[in-house]
Write a protein that binds this DNA or RNA. Structure first.
Lengths: 143, 143
DNA sequence: CTACCTGCAAACGGTTTGCACAGAT
DNA sequence: ATCTGTGCAAACCGTTTGCAGGTAG
């Protein structure tokens, strides 16, 4: 998604366009997944040097409310942000070493939708974390 | 799982058995899922009034290392603890209201195992969170 | 001009850690 | 007697909030 699409989305929702907001949009449009708020802050400062973390959080929150963005807490640390249009995928997180692998959506989406539907849920985020033990760590510990 | 099983597990692993550790084990053996550390603390104080949160965390950590316990961060707040033998299930978490529904494992386990296996993961935790929008909240927001 | 937005700093909730003492072995 | 575990308090991380001043509209 292009910077201007995000900016325009904010504008249309009645929000003012500031240097900081534009910077956050620019960072998100770079295409990287799994950005933590701190990453967004760091990169946004390349465009808007005086931007503060609070502004980053506030902008991310607004973009998320508008549906341009999701965030998940993959492990036990900071949440990671995704622009919504990026290819859907799931995460496998190794509980031992923290390594994460992605699984393409097609593998799990149909089952997820069905399971969610049974409970009356809709608009399931096809981006979440499954915990497990990766191949490196599987042998090193009793279980 | 009975209190004594957990206590015995700690003992066999070389840990000393204190009133606090026994209290945490007792709480966990009550059978409730989704206990946050703060819940465990509160209930443990019924058995060991002077126990501190730090001891609760330390004991939970040890039980988790021994494989008796898992914990997950279902939403954006505190993590919840499960004793491993409890019936496996997944969680649907509503991103709007926080309501959580459980899905029995059989619905999703086969697919999960397959997906995890493709990435070389094993011992997948069949307990994690899927985010979505519950039936109550689905209509109230553009999306 | 006047809301809205900002940077700053401080509060916050959940968790972890350093310490000196208590207590299990 | 020894050394692990404890309670306490303070640090910590990620996130949120109150505020007075700044700026988009």
């Amino acid at each position: 998604m292009a910077t201007e699409d995000l900016v325009e989305g904010l504008r249309r929702a009645g929000f003012r366009i500031t240097a900081g907001r534009r910077a956050v949009c620019a960072v998100l449009s770079e295409g990287d997944s799994h950005l933590r708020a701190a990453d967004v802050l760091e990169r946004a400062r390349a465009h808007a040097p005086r931007i503060d973390q609070s502004s980053v959080y506030r902008t991310l929150e607004k973009l998320e409310e508008l549906g341009y963005l999701h965030h998940v807490h993959l492990g036990h640390g900071a949440g990671v942000y995704h622009v919504s249009s990026q290819a859907n995928h799931q995460h496998l997180v190794c509980v031992d070493c923290g390594r994460t692998e992605e699984i393409a959506s097609e593998v799990v989406a149909p089952m997820l939708d069905e399971a969610a539907g049974m409970a009356g849920f809709s608009e399931t985020w096809l981006h979440f974390a499954i915990q497990g033990r990766c191949s490196n760590c599987a042998g090193t510990r009793p279980g």
